[in-house]
Design a protein around this nucleic acid. Structure first.
Lengths: 340, 340
DNA sequence: TCTAATTTGTGCGTATGTATG
DNA sequence: GCATACATACGCACAAATTAG
């Protein structure tokens, strides 16, 4: 039924040949869960290999959960699912509602054909390097959202360790990192510019635009958003301002519009509007950044400029399934509602 | 400065003694990042150990990211953070907004003293068992939210593999699993009963209570919620009903109140209310399950019965830091707003 | 119940290949 | 070219656990 195939002439180490042989047997369903595989002694005798070599191979298989061992009994196939599925290593900078949407979309897109493990680097290059070093080779694909405050030499070096045909970079472009890897990126600067431009007539009803851009040293938002916002305002001759947050005692004035990145700033602004007895969409315009379900019904509808995170996740799944590693710009759109 | 200490008489394997020796050196800050450690040959000669034994030890250290190797140069300390910090293995059933709050709270509570890795078992006992088997021994603490459709013998057996003083079970009680492990649980049945009881006067304004309890075979919600709801209604002689979802063409009637688990059902109900031109809180009562920030301002405030997920995460951090593994019932409360 | 055979887990000595400086 | 040092490989030995008889 199932046999090792060891080629003594091959350049690949023998212990790896054994490992591959077993995995191959599982892939071809010649080995099933619970099956006993030959003892170390048996293999080493019949295939004229050293005991240590076979043991090394079996240890590797055990570490990767393909086989289990019982002292005095033998080695047994522990898991057949693991090999028949694609393994995806997904690395985010942090968890957020939007990350979850991406994660769920990837899972849904890949269905039962894949395992997706999620890791978080917390924008710490140290953690990131350790992570990639440790996981390199264990997965078939690495989907990574870098989003470090600074993409430095170190991060690039780590990313370059991953073969192009296994790497998909999410969210941000990394121009310094050359290669033929996959990429599903947001063009933050042009995204916001184009989205605002598309509803220029609506926005013109307001005489000043405020961008509420949170200052976060550790998990920074892309500064390109500010660039795009500035360019739009200057090109269309809008009075504008970039502010860090909307506090509870902020002075707001009629006829101004706010583009709000953060949910907490959005909540504070709506509270302020209600305090004054004003009406969202008439006295104050609101454009919220990134869609969530509740924004559809909040204040009769909050207008949103948003990346399609579900689309992003589905693109990842699609890229993996078709193995067509391209550079794709992710959808970004203006969802018009009553608030502007 | 730093030396191996190998005891040939000791029962612990020699390769483990070497591993411990290096980790010990890092812990005592005798070994710093980038330091070169003696070559395999050097160790094997001076300490009269086999080359293979030393190599085995160094391989273990490499796998665990403590050292790195450069062919032809030697082995070097790669990381000093890893040993000085607590390692926490956090296993959720799935990702959700609430899980993220717990995760963030644990991280915040532990601060820089710990690494927290997040894994997801998708309510699949197979995945769960593989995960625990693989990670067992790698972490100092295991924080697990079982939430399987059925807690069967298999899951219990896996959980029992984890020493009590390393295990914290979240969210649900597992009566079958005896032991002195930590636990921060919700008492779903009594939680909802007591929360509703506390606002009985408000609820009495409505003549029928509907519990919208989603049917999800894979990621089931705890049925105890229904029990508690039923008990409250029967005890207080309310007309009541349990429904699976609020579709877009559902008939709603004035004077009824809804307890809603899901966000999408909440959105649909609010849309229906607006279609009819009714007023939330007057014609239809709404109690939403689990707090999110936007519920404070949605429809002038949605009343919420909610677990305090942040509290749950902070309890985990606290439990780990104080090493006082108790069984704690997590806070649950009624947040009264305009919608009921 | 005792024993012998089997098998994993650990340990030792040696040898060859290959990358680095 | 040469020494150093990791990576792989071979053969042997013994302890501990399991199984069959």
């Amino acid at each position: 039924m199932w046999e090792f195939s060891i080629n003594p002439e091959s350049k690949t180490p023998k212990y790896k040949q054994i490992v591959d042989s077993v995995i191959n047997g599982i892939e071809k369903k010649q080995l099933k869960i619970g099956d006993k595989i030959p003892s170390i002694n048996a293999i080493s005798e019949t295939y004229l290999l050293s005991r240590d070599t076979v043991e090394k191979a079996y240890n590797h298989l055990k570490e990767r959960n393909f086989i289990s061992s019982v002292k005095g009994k033998g080695f047994f196939i522990a898991n057949t699912d693991l090999v028949s599925k694609i393994h995806v290593c997904l690395i985010f900078n942090k968890l957020s509602d939007y990350k979850r949407i991406i994660y769920d979309a990837i899972l849904e897109g890949l269905g039962d054909t894949a395992y997706v493990d999620l890791y978080i680097h917390h924008c710490d290059p140290e953690i990131f390097e350790n992570l990639v070093n440790k996981k390199l080779g264990e997965y078939s694909y690495y989907v990574i959202m870098p989003n470090f405050p600074v993409i430095d030499e170190r991060v690039n070096r780590v990313l370059k360790k991953i073969p192009d045909h296994e790497l998909i970079i999410l969210d941000r472009e990394i121009p310094e990192l050359m290669g033929n890897f996959g990429s599903i990126y947001q063009d933050f600067k042009n995204d916001i510019y184009e989205a605002l431009e598309s509803k220029l007539d609506k926005i013109k009803k307001f005489n000043k635009l405020n961008l509420v851009f949170p200052v976060d040293e550790i998990y920074p938002y892309p500064k390109e958003i500010i660039d795009g916002f500035r360019r739009f305002c200057q090109f269309n001759k809008f009075d504008f301002q970039v502010i860090g947050e909307i506090g509870k005692d902020r002075d707001i004035e009629k006829g101004e519009a706010y583009i709000i990145i953060n949910e907490s700033d959005l909540i504070n602004l709506i509270k302020l509007i209600r305090q004054k007895g004003w009406k969202t969409g008439e006295n104050i315009g609101i454009i919220s950044y990134n869609e969530t379900p509740l924004k559809e019904i909040l204040e009769n509808g909050i207008s949103v400029i948003s990346t399609d995170f579900k689309e992003m996740g589905m693109q990842v799944a699609n890229m993996i399934q078709t193995k067509s590693f391209q550079q794709i710009r992710n959808k970004f759109s203006f969802i018009e509602r009553k608030s502007l």
